[in-house]
């Protein structure tokens, strides 16, 4: 309930934030705080300092001009309610609605979630399925990290300790693209026991040109279900091809088990949830 002692910094620019991080190797960046602060109160995390990004200019906002750019400090509630995103990338507001509860949605941020890399978070899978990348700013300037390279392991990313995740970039969808996120919600935490994000593009010939399917909750980090993706590409998006993809959704994945849901059950759920996500993605093609 009472965290260890820590210093608190509230910079107003990204450069200032990076500077504080460089001087405090054990500092942590504070975004919405919904994961970090409980961990500190349980004394599972004891950063020497917090670098609060809430007053840093330019870290919020949604731009849907061509590719989509979302500021790291944009809250789930803003994503959930964005008319522009509902039109351009409906999977994003839909997923935001399923994160936690309204209180979490009001304060939790997209950048915070991706930088925390909780293995059961929702947006990690969505970022993979959307082929998103993040902009990270450090002492030597900025770099772009594809989501695939961002998530390294359980609560571990490829961000350097003195880097700040500032933006999320999502390429514009090409052709007819359908997308959906399906989640089996843990009754206590609200996190995904199994979550499947599917983004499928169909070419002019009616077959799947590109399929990106990512899973969360079932593995130590959000991961693409490549076998399921391959089962779709070049096929018409039909009940048969969806069933074939669902059948191999857990292939090559090492699955978690816990007292609530065994690895065997998660493997089964992955198939069902992949099917459901693909069915809704197909329906959203129009």
């Amino acid at each position: 309930m009472f965290p260890n002692q820590f210093d608190y910094h509230r910079p107003t620019t990204v450069a200032e934030a990076v500077g504080v991080l460089q001087q405090n190797p054990d500092a942590k960046v504070l975004a919405g705080g919904h994961s970090l602060l409980p961990a500190m109160k349980l004394r599972l995390a004891a950063p020497s300092a917090l670098v609060d990004l809430s007053k840093v200019e330019g870290l919020t906002g949604i731009s849907t001009n061509g590719s989509v750019v979302i500021g790291a400090m944009t809250t789930y509630a803003e994503l959930r309610d964005s008319a522009a995103l509902k039109a351009a990338l409906p999977i994003v507001p839909e997923t935001a609605y399923h994160v936690g509860d309204p209180q979490v949605q009001a304060v939790g941020t997209l950048g915070g979630s991706l930088a925390h890399a909780d293995p059961s978070a929702d947006f990690t899978a969505v970022a993979l399925a959307l082929d998103a990348s993040v902009k990270a700013v450090g002492a030597d300037g900025d770099r772009t990290i594809p989501a695939e390279e961002l998530f390294v392991d359980l609560f571990t990313t490829s961000l350097a300790p003195d880097e700040v995740l500032t933006e999320i970039h999502i390429p514009a969808a090409t052709g007819r693209t359908g997308m959906a996120y399906e989640k089996f919600r843990h009754p206590a935490s609200g996190y995904a026991v199994v979550g499947v994000a599917a983004v499928v593009s169909v070419g002019v010939d009616g077959t799947v040109a590109q399929a990106r399917i990512a899973v969360t909750g079932a593995t130590s980090k959000a991961t693409r279900a490549t076998a399921a993706e391959q089962a779709l590409v070049g096929k018409p998006l039909s009940a048969d091809s969806i069933a074939a993809a669902a059948a191999v959704a857990n292939q090559g994945l090492e699955l978690n088990g816990d007292h609530y849901a065994s690895a065997e059950y998660r493997a089964h759920l992955l198939g069902v949830y992949t099917r459901r996500a693909l069915e809704r993605a197909a329906a959203s093609l129009g």
């Binding site: 349980l42 843990h186 009754p187 206590a188 935490s189 007292h259 609530y260």
Partner: peptide, 8 residues
């Protein structure tokens, strides 16, 4: 089930 993250 020692926290509300695990105890539903």
């Amino acid at each position: 089930t020692g926290t509300m993250n695990d105890y539903a």
